[in-house]
């Protein structure tokens, strides 16, 4: 069977300007102070921040593109690169760390053959470290998309990943 390679190349993003207008104007009333939340909403739509959206946002709000770029690169949540279909957040908070969160991260890197912040070639997974999601009593914890997997050990990782196509 031939593997499809379509997903390996960078996807071409078609911008939905109506949706962008809805976010910027309706939801956040074109207010500069809402910049971070507008960026979050855009990222929720596209899974990352496509560069043209930033230019469009700058034009609409009057915030210089340099400043928007500054915000988009300062805060950890934002990604300027396309991310995988499933995002794995490995909690690296102190409580998870002392209970072996680092080992879970190592195991994931090995299985997925990517480093932190990278995406698998098939765009299935992006691996990210996160500084505490507040489930400290259940450590080590990983969060895949919105699901929290608690009290995991290295040998459970493969099985958990298999649930995410």
């Amino acid at each position: 069977m031939r593997e499809t390679t379509a997903l390996c190349t960078k996807p071409v993003i078609e911008l939905d300007f109506m949706e962008l207008d809805r976010i910027i104007d309706d939801e956040y009333s074109r207010d500069k102070e809402n910049l971070i939340m507008i960026l979050q909403a855009i990222q929720n739509t596209y899974n990352y921040l496509p560069k043209p959206t930033l230019a469009y946002l700058s034009e609409k709000t009057g915030v210089p593109l340099s400043q928007i770029y500054g915000v988009a690169t300062f805060y950890k949540t934002f990604s300027l690169e396309p991310r995988g279909k499933n995002i794995i957040y490995v909690c690296l908070g102190t409580a998870c760390h002392v209970r072996g969160g680092g080992k879970i991260m190592d195991r994931l890197k090995e299985i997925l053959r990517i480093d932190t912040g990278e995406t698998t070639e098939d765009m299935r997974f992006t691996l990210e470290g996160v500084r505490c999601i507040g489930c400290c009593s259940l450590g080590p914890v990983i969060k895949i998309n919105e699901d929290i997997h608690s009290r995991i050990s290295g040998d459970m990782v493969e099985n958990i990943l298999s649930k995410y196509a």
């Binding site: 809402n34 939340m37 805060y75 949540t77 500084r131």
Partner: peptide, 18 residues
């Protein structure tokens, strides 16, 4: 208002800038 993942924003002046 939601933060976007920056520990330093717990500091008062940074929080207000954010």
């Amino acid at each position: 208002s939601t933060g976007a993942g920056a520990f330093v924003c717990g500091e008062s002046t940074a929080l207000m800038a954010s």
